[in-house]
Design a protein around this nucleic acid. Structure first.
Lengths: 189, 189
DNA sequence: ACCTGAACACCGTTCAAGT
DNA sequence: ACCTGAACACCGTTCAAGT
């Protein structure tokens, strides 16, 4: 029985921000644009979200959870598949997600300016699958180092690819595959 | 004998933008802030620079050239040093530069939003040192693939580090060194 | 309890007017 | 030829006023 029932919700707002991010870039994620998309006036957003920074952090959080889910699915044990093959699948899944939602993936790792990141909790969830399969490849004590190297390579490659930094020709798919295979080989050695 | 002599210059403006970028982040690189620092009113900047986007692209260009210089110095041949050791030195120099000027390095590779990048010419200059030493390690035909993998790892690692993405403890210096060594090992194999 | 218009301090950018 | 103030269309954010 509220005097005026909510005309939107935090979820809807975050989803709107996310789709604007992917469609038009972070600079287009404006309180006015988000409000427009959810059918409300800009000031109303502040009843559901602290400010623009918090809204973007929420988008980063959601993106991190999606990445975690994708990696979880990719590293799921299938009978007879060795750990290096599962890591390769995870890396390819990472890149496929980065191709589908490039700006969300950038947001997760680079914070796009340096201040916003997902919360530690969601970061832990997102990192878990790769940590586990890394432990299988190199042992528990070197798992963190290996997972960090794998993530750095995958994110760095995809970020550069998305930014158009590979401008000297060549097969980019093959470069990714060769690179990640070399890294896996080197880590296992 | 101009009616009013220039009170600033494109160089000074780009330098001001760059120092503001490193000190306070990209969002602080504002025409008003830059104008303030060079002692002029905002509209005057447009006599020296097309718009804010072009200014930031110029900053990215300068940062790319500096990176190229650092890598050039790091991979310079010293007698008796094998190519894998020179690549390791280049990677450490990359990370040292990223620690000194983190936001400039991010700008070079990620364009921080996806649109701005250094020109192809400066990108070629910046990439040359790593391409050459990669050719020595893996041969001319695999040099591009190797250089891309090395760059992706270095950039990805440094970007994540700068964004505070490594939040599960552990020795970050050691992780970088282990990772790059594994990658070099795998590439050479 | 949520939504709104009005307001404030800021952006980037343009342009006519000064020297 | 460069610099400037004024102006425009935009930001994010606050707040009193509506229902």
């Amino acid at each position: 029985m509220s005097p005026t029932p909510a005309r939107t919700s935090r979820e809807e707002i975050v989803a709107a921000a996310r789709s604007i991010l992917e469609e038009d870039g972070l600079h287009a994620v404006t309180m006015a644009n988000v409000a427009d998309r959810v059918g409300v006036r800009p000031p109303s957003l502040y009843k559901h979200v602290r400010d623009r920074a918090a809204l973007i952090a929420a988008v980063a959080d959601e993106a991190a959870l999606e990445l975690g889910g994708v990696l979880q699915a990719a590293t799921r044990i299938v009978p007879g598949q060795p750990s290096d093959a599962r890591i390769l699948r995870a890396a390819l899944a990472f890149r496929a997600l980065a191709a589908r939602t490039p700006r969300s993936v950038s947001l997760v790792f680079a914070g796009l300016g340096g201040e916003l990141q997902p919360s530690v909790e969601t970061a832990a969830i997102a990192a878990q699958p790769l940590l586990q399969v890394s432990a299988e490849l190199v042992g528990q004590d070197r798992a963190l180092v290996a997972a960090r190297a794998l993530t750095a390579f995958c994110y760095g490659f995809c970020a550069m690819e998305q930014a158009g930094a590979f401008r000297f020709g060549g097969d980019i798919d093959a470069a990714f595959r060769s690179g990640i295979e070399a890294l896996i080989r080197g880590l296992a050695a």
